[in-house]
Design a binder for these strands. Structure first.
Length: 136
RNA sequence: UCAGACGGUCGGGUGAUCGCCUGUUCCUGCUUUUUUGGGAAUGGGAGGAAAGUCCGGGCUUCAGGGGAAAAGGGUGCCGGAUAACGUCCGGUUGAGGCGACUCAAAGGAAAGUGCCACAGAAAACAAACUACCGGCCUUACAGCCGGAAAAGGUGAAAAGGUGCGGUAAGAGCGCACCGCGUCUUUGGUAACAAAGACGGCAGGGAAAACCCCACCCGAAGCAAGACCGAAUAGGAGCCGCAUAGCGCAUCCCAAGCCCACGGGCGCAAGAGGCGCGGCGCUUUCCCCGCGCGCGGCUCGGGUAGGUUGCUCGAGGCGUUCGGCAACGAACGUCCCAGAUGAAUGAUCGCCCGUCGGGUCAGACCCCGACGACAGAACCCGGCUUAUAGACCGUCUGACUUU
RNA sequence: UGGGGGAUCGUCUAGCGGUAGGACAACAGACUCUGACUCUGUUUACCGUGGUUCGAAUCCACGUCCCCCAG
């Protein structure tokens, strides 16, 4: 179950932890592990620095499409994806691989069950047996 | 064929897989109800500028109403269109272009005040540096007196222009033409135009300097406002207390006075009324009008959050009629975005267009890259700014051919 | 989204329509054995495009960028 961050205070709380992963097309910020259990929540940020309203919307749409596909496989925490200047033009496959790698490196990837791998028809190879197979 | 002018339309198309927001209808889970979860069917889902926020209007709130009021702001040739406008249409005048056509904040400078640096004799009251002419004086130059304002030079700008006459020299001093002003007539709703007569020239620029004249404008904005509502401070009702004055009369009345002992007059305090006054009432002033202090109890209050305002509208399309047109009228028909960390997407195939390469050129084919400006946020009418490219229509000029 | 304000040397600021001034900084020189202080001199600017005007930093229109308020 995916939920969205909706308040400025929630975004600030995630950024205040300082835990983040930088990639050419996005920055992933990760919040503290929740005291009370809640589903995975994510937020999107696109500042005025990366372009006008059309560019910002396009960046957020690509990141949203990515989050809907990948984020259910993360541990239940708060995540913020920050768009960068190359987000609207970067190849989608590369962004997808970068995000998977980020989750793996930051150790917030959830260990997959059989049902997840069976439903992962989109080629989501996040099984435990092949951790070094990081696509470059 | 080339070069242009004006107006209009579009601004990628199509399919597959996985998704997003939302209207309507139906089924269903939870729940006392409201709320809310899930599913199915079906409909819709960015723009010509959605942008800048430069104007105008709707809508909402500020108790309210009136004052051709004041301050402040805006507009500015004329007529029309419109809910309204600084917009649009038609015309006038001026400027630009061979032309189609385009552009113009285009009222008033004899209502008044102020400004016009430097240069120049002089920058608007007029006046006269050099030079010109006459007279006096002198051999002559110089000097003095007078005439005149054509010439020189300065400047962005110097008191109509050209020609002829005239004169000592000159000058609208006189005349002709042009310009300008006044008046009359004609045409036009008007701006204005044309013609005629008269005047001898009235008088510089600038009003995007102050200003005058005519007309228009209340302020704030959907984060307006309304509803549900943790918190906190103020509010309303009732009760009690207190009146911040002044004046007037009335009621009541333990001081006091009078008495025929029934009562009467009546100070202070109290009660409410009227008038004057004070403060506040969304820029100020005036008029009407409305409200007014402290404690307790009750009602309530409205921040976080949520719901609503929120999409049917000066609406789109078509036909006919009126109008040169902007536009208006009638009839028919359609429902066509409503998000809120903010939906309309991600990936791929084919087509279309442009560019590059395979190939010196053309055709065909193949490969690769690219796809203008740009994202609704309450809603409309405009303006302004950005914009790859494609298409259509009308018109102008030049050249060639017939 | 709505409302408001601003732009002048490298920085901070003055500026009646008529030569854009000052302070700090920089550079050079003087003073000193050297440096600092002080003194003298030099360099450097009107956000952009149009318009009004003889003439615009100033007045007007449009645009660009920045800042503030409401949250």
């Amino acid at each position: 179950m995916l939920k969205k961050l909706r308040k400025r205070s929630e975004f600030l709380a995630v950024a205040a932890t300082g835990v983040r992963w930088v990639s050419p097309a996005f920055i992933l910020q990760i919040g503290e592990p929740p005291s009370a259990p809640h589903p995975v929540r994510y937020g999107l940020t696109a500042t005025r620095k990366i372009g006008n309203a059309v560019t910002r919307n396009r960046a957020k749409r690509r990141l949203r499409a990515l989050a809907v596909e990948i984020m259910p496989h993360a541990l239940p925490r708060d995540y913020v994806l920050v768009a960068r200047a190359s987000t609207p033009t970067y190849p989608f496959d590369s962004i997808r691989q970068d995000l998977r790698k980020a989750l793996k490196r930051m150790k917030v990837e959830r260990v997959m069950s059989r049902a997840d791998s069976a439903s992962g028809s989109s080629g989501l190879a996040l099984d435990a047996p092949n951790p070094p197979a990081i696509p470059e």
